[in-house]
Write a protein that binds this DNA or RNA. Structure first.
Lengths: 147, 147
DNA sequence: CAATGTTACTATCAAAATGAAAGTAAGTCA
DNA sequence: TGACTTACTTTCATTTTGATAGTAACATTG
């Protein structure tokens, strides 16, 4: 059987996890999507040590998911706002949340509401082309160049 | 502004990340979905130290995403197979991969194919009820008990 | 039947990451 | 002038990781 990693480097999952594969980064992105932008907001929200927070925010900024924006000239103060790449990370967070709701829920969980309709969101993943739900059909992982 | 964590504990994302929030666990789940089941397969695939692998497999087993199965009585040998909860984690991995393909791709990435149709999958997240794509409509995160 | 191989680990220890606590810099406000 | 705010940095003990080597239980080979 295939013993070698099919996805060592050319795997898009590994590429993503290379810098986003820790809890703090993902919780920071979650908080950014909720609307937090400032150092102290993140720190209080997560109870994270400022050392770690500084580094995580720097990485997320370098990697293009957040960007620094001056929100006050006097005194000079910066905040962190989501970029397009950061906003496009929302589906990942929503699917993580969907799994957590299904398998780690106890009836007292945060839910996500459509602001306009008031309906609760139930995120599912589908294939954009066929509309088939992910997980309902057998899949094959294909190395680049083998098609 | 709201300075306190809206999701400290009741957040399904935090619940999930509490034990799946590291790179190795997620790559192990990826490999399990690809079809790997044995200790040495995972070890060679990921280049992970056996100490860490033992612990991660134990956690994934305790948390119900993998289960041990005897595949040989003599000599006694066990393998790790995905449970229903583990299989239901696939949408998360696919969305991570979709983000990685879009923002960390270089044209030589692994892709995912529908075995029957041969079509490449492009995973997107939608709301099951309305069918609206996640990220296209404004959302609100609602604490439990406030509805 | 002794030597070698396979599989799934455990033991040991150095190096790196994390976390807690306190301190700092550049300003504002009273 | 002195207290306060915001966004950090410094320091250092603790925890986690990673590399390497070793082990236990069997099978296979010559």
């Amino acid at each position: 059987m295939n013993d070698k990693n099919i996805c060592a480097d050319p795997c898009p999952i590994a590429r993503c996890l290379a810098f986003l594969g820790d809890t703090w980064s993902l919780l920071l992105l979650r908080d950014a999507h909720i609307g937090l932008t400032r150092f102290d907001q993140f720190r209080k929200s997560l109870g994270i040590a400022p050392t770690i927070l500084t580094r995580r925010l720097a990485t997320l900024t370098e990697e293009g998911l957040l960007e620094k924006r001056l929100y006050s000239e006097r005194p000079p103060r910066e905040e962190y706002v989501l970029t397009a790449a950061g906003r496009d990370f929302l589906p990942v967070l929503m699917m993580i949340g969907a799994w957590g709701s299904q398998y780690r829920g106890d009836g007292r969980l945060v839910r996500v509401q459509d602001v306009e309709t008031g309906e609760y969101i139930k995120p599912i993943a589908i294939d954009e082309v066929t509309g088939a739900r992910i997980g309902t059909r057998p899949l094959r992982f294909v190395m680049p160049g083998s098609d």
